[in-house]
Each structure stands twice: as structure tokens, then as C-alpha cells.
Design a protein around this nucleic acid. Sequence first.
DNA 1: AAATATGTATACTAATTAGGTATGGTATAA
DNA 2: TTATACCATACCTAATTAGTATACATATTT
Lengths: 153, 153
Amino acid sequence: MKLSTKTRYGARILIELAMNREERAIQVSEIAASQKIPVKYLEQLLRTLKLSGFVKSVRGPKGGHLLAKSPDTISLGQVVRLFEGQTDLVACISLPQECDMASECLVRNAWKTATGVLYDKLDSISIADLIRDAGEAFPDAYCPSLAQVENVG
Amino acid sequence: MKLSTKTRYGARILIELAMNREERAIQVSEIAASQKIPVKYLEQLLRTLKLSGFVKSVRGPKGGHLLAKSPDTISLGQVVRLFEGQTDLVACISLPQECDMASECLVRNAWKTATGVLYDKLDSISIADLIRDAGEAFPDAYCPSLAQVENVG
DNA sequence: AAATATGTATACTAATTAGGTATGGTATAA
DNA sequence: TTATACCATACCTAATTAGTATACATATTT
């Protein structure tokens, strides 16, 4: 029961873009280096993020990637739902036919409740929150968009 | 991000044993049939449950398995921790060396918080709770140990 | 004491999934 | 028009999960 690297990488990509928002397009190679993600794998993740409207890109030389929306409006819950194939703790919550015991199973509803509690929390944490929290923990960290983030919302 | 079949089976095994607690030893073949779990796979799970003190067994003809402690004292959190290899949503929470970005990662702490919320919930749900809830949802269900369960604790 | 029904232990294998590569594009600024 | 970027998809491989197979030990019944 663990999150995939796609989800973990995805969150880190969004944070990196959020910390340079509206300043300049960040190239794939740059994100790959700073986040230690293989370039070709990163391109897949960026494509997913772009199709979902979290990221926009600029083509050609001097091109790159930018956050497409305010980091205050992107939650970890959204990131997890985007990258995890199965978002529930057990498949039978949304697909009862996956388990032929589903109709008589006494735990199924409890797994559903626990899943709900987890996503309530994940939905309550935004990319902006993570950057703000980091600002408190590491006041010296380079973080040009913090003021901007705080003005949003 | 989903629970393994071991965890799901494990919870169902405990429920089945709880519903016959102190009445008679239940044979592997019987659990296998009612829960639709392969016999040899079930034996492995029962062994794990036994080593952890949740289940006790009686050998020889007319032998079988019994719950070793009150269903009020067994939580879903305990079951998940027992059967899931990795219990945190991300490995780097307890093993920072698993990810070389751990020290500078701005999401890591959020994954830890979400993991905590999840287990707080799972720890609050006991096997006895599940049987009680089922009693309310299906008043006609066969459930000989319900009264017993309610007297415990 | 033997037969037999049960649980115990470990090694192996098949299936699935996750993680990452490889290849070949397409767009755009210089 | 060419170099530099992003875009799209097919493929591969290693790890994990789920389940089997084999052999053994124990205890009740007769």
C-alpha cells in the first residue's frame, strides 16, 4: 500500500514549477536534473499534468513548462487521483464485481471509510501549502513565488 | 495504492473466527470455502495471524482455528500493519535513504501526515465494530457472538 | 499403536504491475 | 533551415504479488 513514483514525482514537479511560476518556462532537462527523474519518464509525467490542465508548455528553443493554475488550487488529492491507477484502498469499493464476496463482505465499508478519511486530508493540502510550510521550516530557502502565492485566493 | 489480498483476506478471516468465537474450532477447509480463499494460501495467512497472537489453533481431527483474543482488541490498523510489507504511503518516511531527495523534499512531510490520518482511522475500527455494524445493516444475519462481543470491554 | 485428519514450514512459480527505455515524431525561435 | 525544445507511443525489464507444490509434524480416534 504505497504511492507510485509517478505520484511522488508529480507532486515534486508541481512544487518546482510553482516556485518559479510566471517567471520563466522551465525545461524538461532542468527539472530532470534538479528532481533526479529520468528525462523520458519525466516527459510522460509532464504530458499527463498538461492534459489535466495543471501545466502549460512553450515549444521551441527557450521553451519549457509553467504551472497553468494557482498552486493554491492544486491539492495533493488531485495529484494522487491523477497518477494512481486505483485510487481506493480496495478495488471493490467502486467495482464490486472485482470481488465475488463484495455483497456479503463486512469489511468493505470500513475500507471505504478509511479511503474517504485519507482523501479528505489529501484534498486539504495544496501545493501552495507545501511551499509555505517549507518557508517556515527553512526561512533561507530560495522561493521567489512565496509572496505571490500568499496573495492568491 | 491499494491493499494486498493478504490484508483483505486477513480481515475477513478474523471476522469469520470472531463470529464463532469460543464456540468451536473452525477448520481451514471451512474458512477457505466460505471466504473463497485457496487452502494453501489461507494456511499461510493463518500462520501469520497465529504468530502474531490473533489466532490460536487446535491440532488433530476435530481441530481448527479460534480467535485468540477479544475482537474488540483487534483493529484494522493492526491487520494492515501485519500484512502490508510497507505500511507508510511512501518509503522515505521511515527510511529516508530510500530517496536521495528526502532531505530537501517539500512533500515528504505531507505524505507522513496523510499516512497518520489514515492509520488513526484504521486503528479506531475493531473487528467487533465491523460485526456490530453488520448486525445493524443486516439484522437477520447469523451472528452468534454478537451479544458476547457487546459484553466485552 | 496405526490410521488419518489436521496444522506447520518452506521453496517454487505464474501473473501482474511498476518503472523506465527506445524510437520517432512535431513545433518554433533564431 | 536547423537546432532546440516538447509530444506521442510502443516496448522492455525488474520487482512484487498472488498462489502452488512438496514435504513434514502433531494429535485424536479407533
